[in-house]
Design a binder for these strands. Structure first.
Lengths: 227, 227
DNA sequence: CGCTAATTTGACCTTAGTCAAATTCTGTGG
DNA sequence: CCACAGAATTTGACTAAGGTCAAATTAGCG
């Protein structure tokens, strides 16, 4: 549950493994009550402020979770891929969505209706424990990420973003628009581009057809200034 | 649960009310199993990385929760006062503390042992619901606070900090060291001082004997640039 | 009163944001 | 396949925000 690179700090969510090894009866309940939802790249799954109707499970595709500032600027705070779960927080505290979710690629979701999800949790101690554990863990991840935002500079945060993205994408091929990448780092597109340029010159990464590939993970870890 | 000032965003935690209106049997269990702990101003209640032994309830006093950067710089992400609860997150996900807690004033705590706390939760659906609701709510608060850190400047963040502090302290008397205040805003002591100086000149706040008093809340809200 | 720590101010410099222009990429239609 | 328009990315020049260091002032406390 704790990142390989930074054993003393929490950086990674656990959503990805959340729906593995579920008991059979839960799987059945989900299967019989789910709605399949297909969205294309760029479409919004749910909007900040909307009322949650259920939780979403990502079957295929990649999704960004983000909050929107007044000027409309996005702040991407998490990425979700296959088998990840979306939208459970606001369902559990019975509030409107505190953030939005949109597709980075074409996606397929299972929508589990609110009542079904809540009853699964109520009737299944194990599920509840896992949810609680999951969300509590995220707490530590968030503390750390707001600390990084407050204390680390753009170069350091960009290095950290690359480490996160490497784990999110497959085969060392990071494919993300500069706009999304910069709103994940918390900087302007131009500043991000300049840092990436530096990393290229320092032979730490390569960029081909807008795909970032990591050459020297050791150096990236060192640049984060987190260890 | 949602702030008065910013109805469309989550800014406030709900810890303060967490332990009110507990069922009698829970109160009894806590009473018979608690340890009373008295610490003086400045003392550390628990350290990042330590193993949680239980949860703490603040009976009197004020506490800061913070994460520590490599250089030792503190990042204060939350303040807790009377009736607040501390240390439950890492107990629930069974990890070492992801952050530290230290006393801003002389404090008195109840320490509820791990096993007792977990059994209260297990045997008490209502308690569990509240914990889950509480933590899920915090999720939204954190998203927002990391967004603010990423997108807003020091002046805006300082204004927001003053709003938070006004709710935390009593009688419009904000008493916090510049060091703590600056690590809450996420800036240097000097930059914070300069912004406070500006606020004084603009007649928005007054500072007497190192206590900040708000003169014009309307203006402070406007300055945050959050609405 | 005198010592230490905290706060405030000033000067300077680095970082990173903004705006504009140039270049490259992408998809579409011929 | 090529040409082209529009979008995304990159680069350059400039500016503003905010960090750092040192010195001055004030507060806290025995």
């Amino acid at each position: 549950m704790i990142s390989v690179f930074f054993p003393h700090k929490r950086y990674s969510f656990v959503n990805e493994s959340f729906l593995q090894c579920l008991p059979d009866n839960v799987i059945n309940t989900i299967e019989t009550n789910k709605t399949v939802l297909k969205l294309t790249k760029g479409q919004v799954l749910f909007h900040e402020g909307a009322i949650p109707m259920g939780v979403y499970i990502v079957k295929t595709g990649k999704v960004k979770k983000y909050a929107t500032g007044l000027n409309g600027k996005e702040h991407i705070f998490h990425l979700v891929k296959e088998n990840g779960i979306l939208g459970h927080h606001n369902l559990l505290c019975d509030e409107t969505y505190s953030h939005s979710a949109a597709c980075l690629t074409d996606c397929c979701f299972f929508l589990i209706p609110k009542t079904i999800f809540l009853s699964i949790i109520k009737n299944n101690h194990n599920m509840l424990d896992r949810i609680l554990q999951n969300i509590s863990h995220e707490f530590g991840v968030f503390i750390n990420s707001s600390r990084v935002m407050a204390q680390h500079n753009v170069r350091e945060r960009t290095a950290l973003s690359i480490i996160k993205l490497e784990k999110f994408f497959d085969n060392n091929r990071i494919k993300l628009s500069r706009k999304d990448h910069s709103s994940m780092v918390g900087t302007s597109i131009e500043s991000l581009v300049r840092v990436l340029h530096d990393f290229k010159e320092e032979k730490i990464i390569e960029i081909k057809e807008n795909v970032i590939m990591i050459n020297d993970m050791e150096k990236i870890i060192r640049i984060t200034n987190l260890i």
